[in-house]
């Protein structure tokens, strides 16, 4: 490129008057339009994301009447709402149900699905890719199509209205198997070789080497599975039939379907339901990001 051409194209190299001409009649103002639009859009998106949480928190401190009226600031009804909730719902029992199902489901799903993901990636077999493709294909079957056969299965096994009815169908989670298989591609196979030479059996390699090395993948999967099972609504609604088995999500639903719903109470119940997933997310956040980027460096 000739000097003249370079001079023409580089505003910083040009004379001040020429620089202004290059920027156009509105000069520096034009440079600010792009970022301004960007920040406006981002602010709107942030508002849309955060407002429901704010509204939920505000709602816990207001009466049902104020919430319906659209009061958007904190009130003094928090303890009243909490008292009403405790009066209407056996909170410890419902929380126990939710935690029991979510924790057992998460542990079992992670164990079974990570084992499957590990096996799919590590062991070669002529049917491997076909079986895996068949598994992935099952992701396309909507839950509505599985609901009735699953219910019949659970009923014939005598599991209706038990924790097992909720937990068992979640354990082999195809998405989590897929996720672990993808993550295992980054697991150094030489570590497995080294462990074999060190005398470890395959299950010991999985427990003592694979699991610790892939901990960020496990963290990310924990957040995903825990949130899914904690928030699970439709299937528990179908198979859990007595009040003493209900989970928090089902409880909120039943509060909402009352003849005159108390929105203050519903908001308190909603906050209590949201807290565990938030706490887990913040506890595992650093590992979650690593897990999403790839576990092994």
């Amino acid at each position: 490129m000739s000097d003249v051409a370079a001079h023409r194209l580089d505003p910083e190299a040009a004379e001040p008057s020429a620089r202004a001409a290059l920027r156009g009649p509105d000069g520096p103002g034009r440079d600010m339009i792009g970022p301004a639009v960007k920040y406006i859009v981002l602010s709107l998106a942030a508002f849309v994301s955060v407002f429901p949480f704010f509204w939920m928190l505000v709602g816990t401190t207001n009466s049902s009447y104020d919430i319906v009226r659209g009061k958007a600031w904190f009130g003094d009804q928090l303890l009243v709402n909490l008292g009403n909730l405790i009066e209407q719902v056996d909170l410890p029992r419902v929380l126990f149900n939710s935690f029991y199902i979510a924790i057992i489901s998460t542990v079992a799903t992670l164990l079974v699905s990570s084992l499957a993901g590990y096996a799919f990636e590590i062991f070669r077999h002529k049917w491997r890719e076909r079986i895996f493709a068949a598994l992935l294909l099952m992701l396309s079957i909507p839950f509505a199509a599985l609901m009735v056969p699953l219910f019949v299965m659970m009923a014939s096994a005598g599991l209706i209205n038990t924790y097992s009815a909720i937990i068992l169908p979640t354990i082999a989670n195809i998405f989590i198997i897929f996720y672990f298989r993808q993550a295992t591609k980054a697991f150094p196979h030489e570590l497995r070789d080294a462990a074999k030479i060190d005398g470890l059996k395959e299950w010991q390699i999985f427990l003592r080497v694979y699991m610790p090395v892939m901990r960020s993948t496990y963290a990310a999967a924990t957040i995903i599975v825990f949130t899914l099972t904690w928030n699970n609504y439709l299937w528990p609604l179908i198979v859990l039939q007595t009040n003493d088995m209900k989970t928090m999500v089902l409880t909120i639903s039943s509060l909402n379907s009352a003849y005159t719903p108390d929105f203050g109470v519903i908001m308190v119940a909603t906050v209590i339901t949201t807290l565990p997933t938030l706490i887990i997310f913040f506890l595992l956040q650093r590992l979650f990001v690593q897990g999403m980027l790839g576990s092994v460096k």
Partner: peptide
């Protein structure tokens, strides 16, 4: 055996 990638247990 000593491996090219060292194969040390990172944890």
């Amino acid at each position: 055996m000593v491996f090219q990638s060292y194969a040390l247990y990172p944890h």
